[in-house]
């Protein structure tokens, strides 16, 4: 009898120990559903777009700044670029709903992958949960990158590699194809929080961190894939596909507009890791004196000054 109990208890301990060490495959929380975008950083990305020359708070290095300042918005009219997808880092920024669904093993019923569809101009990101390794450096970089996930407690941790060279912000900052991304997704009832660490050894000196909050909203009814896209000739000049719109170093006429417009020091507008931290404000305190613009004509709704009126026109744009 004792022998039987020892054997049985030992077997159960071995089994439990194995199950605990294999926790990522078992401890899953249901993330499926349509999640409406509630709030996130860099809301301008979802409105009129970030201003040319606004690199504030982005941890770019000198090379990243050089590429950003050479950017001409006419690049978006290159026929080859018109239907390109955004980088998977844009999955975290909305504004469209995030459609999340799982793929299950037909035999075991286990979830082998989570899929995230963020709709327009964004590829479906498949997050493999079956422990497969990331491909080699010679493998193709799809628009979605290659993502794997593990559960750490109730947090889904997603590691993405094989990301295509793309825009870090749509005002011309770029990230390279060596960028990687780590995301932490936590469900709190009907809310979903997403923390994104975006790293790029080529253009960033520190991780670019983004957070966003989503709310379960079946009515958002987001499609899983982006609509089909057809490029057109937007500019006769660019029908010559060998032309690449850009500004030569020091020749971008819009480079300082953002800093001038908001009366910001150029040092802050041109970004860099230091501009992310509160210490940067202290550094500027004695050398920079803020002079408010005479009147607010853009993004006034975000002004902390109650005297600034928020006026929107029929399209919802601030005027």
């Amino acid at each position: 009898m004792i022998k039987f109990r020892i054997f049985t208890i030992t077997s159960i301990i071995v089994l439990l120990g194995t199950l605990l060490t294999s926790a990522p495959a078992f401890a899953q929380i249901d993330l499926s559903g349509v999640w409406g975008f509630v709030r996130g950083q860099y809301g301008q990305e979802n409105a009129g777009g970030s201003d040319i020359g606004d690199f504030t708070g982005i941890p770019i290095n000198d090379e990243g700044r050089a590429v950003g300042l050479s950017f001409s918005a006419a690049q978006w009219s290159e026929p080859e670029r018109q239907c390109q997808y955004y980088s998977p880092r844009y999955v975290s920024t909305g504004p469209f709903a995030l459609n999340v669904w799982s793929d299950t093993d037909p035999v075991t019923g286990r979830i082998v992958a989570w899929n995230m569809g963020a709709w327009i101009d964004k590829d479906i990101v498949t997050v493999w949960m079956d422990g497969r390794p990331h491909p080699s450096v010679n493998a193709f970089h799809p628009y979605s990158g290659f993502a794997t996930g593990t559960w750490e407690g109730d947090t889904l941790v997603i590691r993405t590699t094989h990301i295509k060279w793309s825009v870090l912000r749509i005002n011309g900052l770029q990230h390279s194809d060596r960028a990687t991304m780590t995301q932490y997704i936590v469900r709190h009832g009907d809310l979903l929080s997403m923390l994104t660490y975006f790293e790029d050894p080529v253009y960033l000196s520190e991780p670019f961190v983004l957070s966003s909050v989503w709310q379960l909203n079946p009515k958002a009814n987001s499609s899983r894939t982006s609509p089909a896209c057809e490029p057109i000739n937007e500019s006769p000049r660019l029908e010559n596909t060998s032309i690449v719109p850009h500004y030569l170093p020091g020749k971008n006429p819009f480079a300082n507009d953002y800093a001038r417009y908001y009366n910001l020091p150029l040092e802050a507008a041109q970004g860099g890791a230091q501009t992310m931290y509160p210490e940067f404000r202290k550094k500027l305190k004695d050398v920079y004196h803020y002079v408010p613009p005479e009147k607010c004509t853009r993004y006034c709704c975000d002004s902390p000054d109650p005297a600034v009126k928020c006026v929107r026109d029929g399209s919802g744009q601030v005027r």
């Binding site: 290159e78 390109q84 193709f140 970089h141 628009y143 295509k164 060279w165 194809d177 690449v244 850009h246």
Partner: peptide
């Protein structure tokens, strides 16, 4: 790595710039 038109475009643009 194995590439496509997107990757080729980024490289071509860099060379031209």
């Amino acid at each position: 790595p194995v590439s496509d038109s997107h990757d080729l475009l980024e490289y071509r643009d860099m060379v031209v710039i």
